[in-house]
Design a protein around this nucleic acid. Structure first.
Lengths: 121, 121
DNA sequence: CCGTATCCGTTGCGATACTG
DNA sequence: CAGTATCGCAACGGATACGG
């Protein structure tokens, strides 16, 4: 058995996710980074939200980071961007269905986080 | 309502996790980083494992990263380190009970990762 | 066998200023 | 209003060599 034949019970049935394509790893990358959770969180709470509203709500975020995070989330299919041709321009962001499945999992993970946190302290 | 009064339905009921202590965020930090999943994955598959075995199994990892990752995982209560005073020294690592709760959640997340990945391509 | 120590490149993120 | 552009730093991770 070579190193690449390692099986991983966590996320794959055939190969270790850590060595080839890993759905778990890529899932974590998608929601990783400093601001992704904050954005998903805000959109999940308020529903469709405008750019500037989002920016005011997420304390401390810069334009650079907000834009790049939104862009990545859109590319990964977690949010949709809708632009209305008004004057001035209005842009709104909304969670997609992919997030309907994601949120319950994140809640479980959050509960696990609480549990681990209280045990170690 | 100030920025800090934001409520987050994802992980807290009182305050937004992204602005104060966030169990979800810290959970992601614990399993984040380049090698954490690989280590958890290997230990979950094989059970108690020695340092060098782990190193051979996780292709590409350096001593520096393996040691620091193991140390962090131990500090966070996800693994235990046991050292046997033999000659030469034997050190073994094992998952803790905290991982029993974590693994099923990671599997769900992995399945979500598969779903998202297939949809966007 | 099981790590440390040191150095160094890359990436992530922040700050600030500016634009269609 | 909703972004871009540019610069700079600090953290993360890799490479190599050495130590108990």
């Amino acid at each position: 058995m070579t190193e690449r034949d390692v099986k991983c019970v966590v996320s794959c049935e055939t190969k270790c996710p850590c060595m080839e394509y890993c759905p778990l790893g890529s899932a974590l990358k998608i929601i990783g980074g400093k601001w992704k959770l904050s954005i998903l969180c805000a959109l999940h709470q308020d529903g469709t939200t405008r750019y500037n509203t989002l920016k005011r709500k997420i304390a401390g975020i810069t334009n650079t980071m907000l834009v790049s995070s939104l862009k990545e989330l859109e590319e990964d299919g977690l949010i949709v961007r809708r632009q209305y041709m008004e004057m001035p321009v209005r842009v709104e962001y909304t969670l997609t269905e992919a997030c309907d499945d994601l949120m319950p999992i994140l809640m479980q993970l959050a509960q696990w986080g609480v549990k681990v946190h209280t045990k170690e302290s």
